[in-house]
Design a protein around this nucleic acid. Structure first.
Length: 294
DNA sequence: TGGCAGGGGTTGA
DNA sequence: TCAACCCCTGCC
């Protein structure tokens, strides 16, 4: 079984199940089953070694998937040292890594993500593989999704998202080059290009840029991030900050790697301080204000 | 056991 | 700016 000795910590559960990728199933706390570049694989992290059972995957592919070339401690040194929340997020989840997911699968996952919880998005990914992915349960290409039609997608519990995914698949089956986003293209322009696709708005475009294209300056704002920034950084503000306020603030406060700050804060907040916020009436008020703010 | 609220957004009017 | 879009889960 090939393996890679790691010089940094790796938290497979936080990394694979935390909302970046949706094709992973836990087998045991240290063992996960899923796909990397359409190849089925089981990953195990033990005693500082990351091993995998599919020899057709190279160490470089594994390294690339977990962004192991990225020096996170150095990046965290560029963040404001006076930010206690980010410090807490880093200290409690230093094994969290940003992944490099396949752009098409990542885009599909996030088109399916609206008003869905992580577990439901994983179920959809699983159903798409089972019903459309053939014997090897490969994630279906735009062409296959396009040929299968909206009804087949609805059968996979996509609901109204089926229309969006079918329409986007049709466009990409004809023009796959839309997803060839060169590193020289500024993130804002790359986001605008993705947002020409049906079902893709500002949140999804930034998730795809962050988790598939390694654009560390992409700062996705969803209900959790909005809630987090509001509660932790602007607790006295009566209204939730608007999308454009959040975008400007994040770039100014965190700098060019704001997306990585977001990844850690998001995970830490959801599993820590944010998990305790359950006041439903307030939540409803927040949601209305948040949407109005957008 | 059944009803109901709510969820990691986007769209179109 | 705001309702509509699907449907699954958790809770009472």
């Amino acid at each position: 079984m090939p393996f890679l000795p790691l010089s940094c910590p790796l938290d497979l559960s936080a990394t694979l199940l935390g909302g970046q990728s949706f094709c992973w199933q836990p087998v045991s706390p240290d063992l996960f089953q899923g796909w990397i570049q359409s190849k089925p694989v089981r990953l195990e992290y033990k005693a500082g070694n990351l091993s995998w059972d599919n020899p057709s995957l190279s160490a470089d592919q594994i390294r690339r998937y977990f962004s192991l070339d990225l020096d996170l401690p150095s990046i965290f040194k560029t963040f404001p040292p006076s930010d206690p929340h980010l410090k807490a997020a880093w200290q409690s989840h230093s094994g969290l890594r940003p992944v490099r997911e396949d752009p098409w699968e990542c885009l599909s996952n996030f088109i399916c993500s609206s008003l869905k919880q992580i577990i439901q998005i994983r179920q959809i990914n699983d159903r798409l593989r089972t019903s459309l992915g053939g014997t090897h349960r490969v994630f279906p290409s735009p062409k296959i999704i396009c040929q299968s039609g909206e009804a087949a997608l609805r059968a996979c519990s996509l609901g109204y998202r089926a229309r969006h995914l079918a329409a986007t698949a049709k466009i990409l089956a004809e023009k796959p080059e839309i997803l060839d986003i060169p590193p020289s293209l500024p993130t804002q322009e790359a986001a605008a290009r993705l947002e020409t696709l049906p079902g893709v708005g500002p949140k999804i475009s930034r998730c795809v840029l962050l988790y598939a294209y390694s654009r560390w300056d992409a700062f996705p704002v969803d209900v959790w991030v909005s809630r987090l920034v509001w509660k932790l950084y602007f607790p006295r503000k009566r209204k939730a900050p608007s999308l454009s306020e959040l975008e400007h603030w994040s770039a100014k406060h965190f700098g060019p790697d704001s997306g990585l700050a977001q990844l850690f804060l998001f995970h830490w907040f959801r599993t820590g301080p944010g998990a305790r916020t359950k006041a439903l009436p307030k939540e409803t008020v927040f949601k209305r204000q948040s949407r109005r703010g957008n």
